[in-house]
């Protein structure tokens, strides 16, 4: 029969149309604006309308998600901010579009470099969100952020003030990575302490 293909296609569309209502009825009232609803609508069992209604519902991003980077500081008990970055420059060297600028100063008395950046700039209008800076930082000092709501009315060049965020924020967005890195740091410190003790004894 001529037209059978079109009718079959319309049948598929009709099935999807009916599905939008069936799933809403099955989940009566609980389908929207809660995390289980969002998870259901993003799974393989999703039927019907699967829209994530931003901004009322925000689809959670996975831990690995990378957007523009930020610098980590540890909050010391006396309230001081200890910036983890030692201005070693690896992130600036490894950045593919070279969008990181770091000024490293030398201590005027000893002449050795100060392990803290004097100035740190990231041009977010060049950053390609590749994550190399975070991947190759030996001190876990620069981390890829999850915050994607950074649209603005002018160009975006971030200086150190804008980039600094506390380690507690890092822990909240990347708990697994944070735990792994803390373990690694503690292991390194324990090894160093053991070596110092062994050296002290001998």
């Amino acid at each position: 029969m001529y037209g059978k293909g079109i009718i079959k296609g319309l049948g598929v569309t009709l099935k999807r149309f009916v599905d939008t209502y069936l799933d809403d009825i099955a989940w009566w009232g609980r389908r929207y604006y809660n995390p289980e609803g969002i998870a259901h609508r993003s799974s393989k069992d999703a039927r019907g309308v699967f829209t994530v209604q931003y901004p009322e519902e925000k689809l959670p991003v996975p831990e690995e998600f990378r957007y523009v980077p930020f610098l980590v500081y540890d909050e010391k008990p006396d309230g001081k901010k200890e910036i983890r970055c030692t201005s070693c420059g690896i992130c600036a060297k490894v950045c593919p579009p070279q969008c990181i600028w770091i000024v490293r100063t030398n201590d005027p008395q000893t002449g050795r470099p100060v392990p803290e950046p004097a100035e740190f700039y990231i041009d977010a209008d060049i950053c390609m969100n590749c994550g190399f800076c975070a991947e190759y930082c030996p001190f876990d000092a620069i981390i890829m952020d999850h915050d994607y709501e950074i649209a603005s009315y002018q160009r975006n060049v971030f200086n150190m003030e804008k980039l600094l965020k506390p380690a507690s924020y890092y822990k909240s967005i990347r708990p697994l990575n944070y735990a792994l890195n803390e373990e690694a740091r503690k292991a390194k410190e324990a090894a160093r302490a053991a070596r110092a003790e062994a050296a002290g004894r001998s």
């Binding site: 201005s87 420059g89 600036a92 060297k93 490894v94 950045c95 593919p96 070279q98 990181i100 600028w101 770091i102 000024v103 490293r104 470099p113 100035e119 700039y121 041009d123 060049v157 200086n159």
Partner: peptide, 15 residues
Amino acid sequence: NKPLDSRWPRGKYAS
């Protein structure tokens, strides 16, 4: 070739 000298250690931002 990259990495560029102008980014570190004297990397004052200059577009």
